[in-house]
């Protein structure tokens, strides 16, 4: 079922929706079978003959009888959806006083996701790490146009809208990596605005968290040092933040722990030194229209930059 994330839930929220969907699918299938059956029988049984059929203008009683069953079905579907809307998937807007309003703050950008871990300085991009078994409150917003945050196996879809804050629950019961996508059309690279949710065992999550909190040590290697000065002397640092190196900006993904991420450019290519080099050389080759310019870097600059960025573990 891994090809069918909607049918392969990994959280109580997504599971509730799957169960509802399956039930409504069966109901719909049944209705279709009845209607299609009646139509087929009518066509077969009453195919053209020479005698003039009885001119039947209809009956109010039959019409009303016919509407009873659909009314029941519709009320039933309304009831079971309302149950979900009010329970499992209730939007977590009200939060207990004294508590932070969210555990995670996710901000949509054209075309990447910024992830802030509330209560820490950790800022990441396109990768959300969570502990298993814990229901997390996620605050969604957008820095530019409307995006939509969707991890089919874990949670409902919710739009990230500029000037608004939306909240959803995010939870994973099993360790694993879950694909997320932008689901609202947001411009040229809407197709390449993916992210992953990585669920760890709670103790592994703590380890990961500790790792993220430490700033990677300054490079010692000469090549990497040269790369760092290239990073600062070109305009890279105008948009990208690296803890301890360039200021905190939310124009482009934070690179503090770039080398530890799985993918580059919002899920476009695996994060390997070769791919990083290719990406730096010509971002538009992977993501035409993306906001990162082609700096026309020389081969030497590319080597140095990759050497430096690879130290950001």
């Amino acid at each position: 079922m891994s090809n069918f994330p909607v049918f392969d839930p990994a959280s109580p929220q997504a599971e509730a929706i799957r169960d509802l969907f399956v039930q409504v699918l069966w109901i719909s299938g049944g209705i279709f079978a009845i209607v299609a059956g009646l139509i087929c029988i009518a066509i077969w049984k009453f195919r053209s003959n020479e005698t003039l059929p009885t001119q039947d203008f209809g009956s109010h009683r039959k019409e009303i009888a016919w509407i009873v069953a659909p009314v029941i079905v519709v009320l039933w579907i309304a009831a079971i959806s309302a149950k979900l809307v009010l329970t499992y998937n209730a939007v977590p807007q009200a939060h207990p006083p004294g508590q932070q309003d969210a555990d995670l703050i996710v901000t949509g950008h054209q075309w990447w996701w910024q992830v802030d871990y509330a209560g820490t300085d950790i800022v990441s991009a396109n990768e959300i790490h969570i502990p298993t078994g814990k229901r997390l409150r996620v605050k969604l917003s957008s820095a530019d146009v409307i995006h939509s945050f969707w991890v089919a196996r874990l949670a409902r879809k919710m739009d990230a809208i500029p000037g608004r804050e939306n909240f959803i629950w995010l939870q994973a019961d099993k360790v694993g990596t879950y694909t997320g996508r932008c689901a609202e059309f947001c411009g040229t690279q809407h197709a390449r605005m993916n992210f992953i949710v990585v669920a760890h065992e709670p103790e592994d999550y703590e380890k990961w968290l500790a790792g993220e909190k430490t700033v990677p040590p300054a490079p010692t290697d000469a090549k990497a040092l040269a790369g760092r000065s290239t990073f600062l002397s070109l305009t890279c640092s105008q948009c990208h933040a690296i803890a301890g190196v360039s200021a905190d900006r939310s124009i482009a993904p934070d690179l503090t722990h770039l080398a530890s991420r799985r993918d580059l450019a919002a899920g476009v290519i695996p994060n390997t030194p070769e791919n990083l080099r290719r990406w730096l050389k010509d971002p538009a080759a992977f993501k035409p229209g993306c906001k990162m310019p082609d700096f026309k870097l020389t081969e030497a600059q590319l080597d140095e930059l990759v050497a430096y960025l690879e130290t950001l573990k």
Partner: peptide, 24 residues
């Protein structure tokens, strides 16, 4: 026949949580 299919999937979307998964 075809319109009934479209109508039934429409009813699925009226079940809000299904819409949350499948919209867009």
């Amino acid at each position: 026949l075809e319109f009934v299919i479209g109508g039934l999937t429409g009813v699925m979307f009226a079940a809000v949580p299904i819409d949350w998964q499948l919209t867009d």
